[in-house]
C-alpha cells in the first residue's frame, strides 16, 4: 500500500479525526508519519526538543519523570487513541517535560507540531477542531493529575482526630 494511503487509513481510525473534513485530514496526513517503537524503547526524553505530537495507535506508552533521589516515577500511561506530547502544540513549550517509553511494542502516528500550528493558523476551522480536542486532553489530564495529587488512597492526616 502507498505509505500515504496507509497513513490516512490509520488516521481515520482515530475516533476524533472522524470530525475532520477530507481536506483537513489530507492536510494533517501531509505533516504526519507512522512510527513503531519496541518495548522498552525510548520515544523521547525529558528535556528533548519537542517536535512532534504523538497519537498511540496500538500498544502503550509510559510517561516518566526522573525525581532525584527517588528515581524514575511513572505518572501516566497512554493507551490507543491517546495523545502524548500535546504541549508542543502550544507556541511556548519547546522541551519535553517527561520521558516517553514504550511499555510494549507500540505503533504511533507522529505529527510535526510546528507545521500543525501553522495549519491551524491558516485554517481556523481546522484550528478550532484541533484545539478543542487538545482542550479535552488537557482537561482530562489535569483532572487525573489533581486526583493523583490528592493521593486519594493516602491515610489522611487526622487533624480533626477524636
Amino acid at each position: 500500500m502507498d505509505p500515504l494511503d496507509e497513513l490516512k487509513l490509520e488516521l481515520q481510525k482515530i475516533p476524533w479525526f472522524r470530525d475532520l473534513q477530507i481536506k483537513h485530514l489530507d492536510l494533517i496526513a501531509g505533516i504526519s508519519q507512522l512510527r513503531d517503537v519496541k518495548a522498552g524503547e525510548v520515544l523521547f526524553r525529558e528535556g528533548d526538543r519537542a517536535e512532534y505530537i504523538y497519537i498511540v495507535l496500538s500498544g502503550r506508552i509510559a510517561l516518566d519523570m526522573a525525581v532525584p533521589p527517588r528515581g524514575k516515577m511513572r505518572f501516566h500511561t497512554a493507551d490507543p487513541w491517546e495523545v502524548i506530547g500535546w504541549s508542543s502544540a502550544t507556541p511556548v513549550v519547546h522541551q519535553r517535560t517527561a520521558s516517553a517509553t514504550a511499555v510494549v511494542d507500540t505503533h504511533l502516528a507522529m505529527i510535526d507540531s510546528t507545521k500543525l500550528r501553522e495549519l491551524c493558523d491558516q485554517d481556523h476551522d481546522l484550528g478550532y477542531l484541533v484545539m478543542r480536542r487538545l482542550a479535552n486532553i488537557v482537561a482530562s489530564r489535569l483532572m487525573s493529575s489533581r486526583l493523583q495529587l490528592l493521593d486519594m488512597f493516602a491515610e489522611p492526616e487526622n487533624k480533626n482526630a477524636k
Binding site: 509510559a62 516518566d64 524514575k72 516515577m73 493507551d79 510494549v104 486519594m152
Partner: peptide, 23 residues
C-alpha cells in the same frame, strides 16, 4: 487495573480510576 504511581518496572496502566472509562 491502574495505579496512581509506579516505578518504571510497572508494565500496567498508570492513572486514576475515572480515566479508565476512556479505555
Amino acid at each position: 487495573v491502574t495505579v496512581d504511581r509506579a516505578d518504571e518496572d510497572w508494565q500496567g496502566q498508570v492513572g486514576v480510576v475515572p480515566m479508565l472509562f476512556y479505555r
